[in-house]
């Protein structure tokens, strides 16, 4: 069969998926005008939710589609934040610094990728974490950061709180939308197909001529920039940069939780996982440590009894995966 013949057999998007997309677009439109009527608290919480969704989507891209299970994405959250602090210190306005700082973290991710992507799965998970710790130590040496004390991006205080809140909200909404759309385009394209082939069987992928390293590197760098942007947006709303918080392993724990509870390797799963995580935090967050202990137990229960996450509930009933990244071919020849 020639390529053209195969392409002719690819089914159009299922009606269910089209309905989901239309609903999502409508929801985005509502979210765009929401600040006009919602309270400041709601706007802040939604901003945080968008940031969580970005983290989940990026970690899923990495682990779910390229098979790269990283426990060290906090390296880029911290580095992006640090680069942002440094750029603002050098006189750059804070809002461009959000994105430029994240790009700087992407450069480090590109350099790191030559080293970490050659490791086996277990080594990769741990080495990325150790590198994040090593970078945290080095950032703490910077006199501007003052060790564990951290520093505040005071330039952000020059803006009126209302205007700052609204800007960060809209930036987060737009960035999240672009990121999800970008992930969609990437996964539906050549890179996505190659990455899924590598995840399922690296040797077989290599044998059909996929340059596995280049594909993994592309996804690793993109996902790292994505995590860094989400991190700098979070920093812009939190204002204070502290190495221990920004480089904390809890970010990776959150990402892992959201993605696996939602359904790893599915497009919609991590978004659902982020919503569940957000809801748990809103309902039980006041219980402090006991709430986090509960999150841990929820993670164990999901891992043991529902390893495919929330989306797994659909799949177990024999229904098709919503918004699948697989190409569906028609039966007739």
């Amino acid at each position: 069969m020639t390529k053209a013949q195969i392409v002719a057999h690819i089914l159009p998007m299922p009606a269910q998926d089209r309905r989901i997309l239309i609903a999502a677009l409508a929801l985005l439109a509502v979210l765009a005008v929401l600040p006009l009527m919602a309270s400041a608290l709601v706007v802040d919480k939604l901003t945080y939710l968008f940031i969580l969704i970005m983290f989940a989507a990026m970690w899923n891209l990495l682990a779910g589609y390229a098979g790269l299970v990283s426990v060290g994405q906090q390296a880029f959250i911290g580095l992006g934040g640090y680069a942002m602090v440094r750029m603002v210190e050098a006189g750059l306005p804070p809002f461009p610094a959000i994105f430029l700082g994240a790009l700087a973290a992407g450069v480090v991710a590109w350099i790191m990728s030559w080293f970490v992507l050659r490791m086996k799965a277990g080594e990769f998970a741990i080495a990325t974490w150790v590198i994040a710790e090593a970078i945290r130590s080095m950032v703490s040496f910077d006199p501007l950061i003052q060790g564990e004390t951290g520093t505040s991006i005071t330039a952000l205080n020059a803006y009126a709180p209302e205007m700052r809140r609204l800007t960060i909200y809209l930036l987060s909404l737009v960035t999240m939308t672009l990121m999800i759309w970008g992930a969609w385009a990437l996964l539906h394209g050549r890179t996505g197909a190659q990455a899924q082939a590598i995840r399922d069987d690296e040797e077989a992928a290599e044998s059909v001529g996929i340059t596995t390293f280049a594909v993994k590197q592309r996804i690793y760098v993109l996902a790292s920039i994505g995590c860094a942007v989400a991190g700098t947006l979070w920093l812009a709303s939190a204002i204070t940069f502290q190495p221990r918080t920004s480089f904390g392993v809890q970010w990776s724990v959150f990402m892992l939780f959201m993605v696996l509870v939602g359904g790893i390797g599915t497009f919609i799963g991590p978004i659902l996982g982020a919503l569940l995580f957000f809801a748990l935090q809103e309902i039980f967050g006041d219980f402090g440590a006991w709430y986090m202990a509960g999150v841990g137990i929820v993670a164990i229960l999901f891992a043991l009894y529902l390893p495919n996450g929330i989306v797994g509930l659909w799949l177990n009933k024999g229904r098709a995966e919503p918004l699948s990244m697989r190409k569906l071919l028609s039966q007739d020849r």
Binding site: L256, I264, A289, M292, A293, V295, G296, I300, A303
Partner: peptide, 22 residues
């Protein structure tokens, strides 16, 4: 497989840390 033990033990870690804190 590879991922489920990671999620399980990370969850166990979070439960232990925060349980001991509590």
């Amino acid at each position: 497989g590879f991922l489920i033990p990671i999620l399980t033990t990370i969850g166990l870690g979070a439960a232990l840390q925060n349980g001991m804190f509590g």
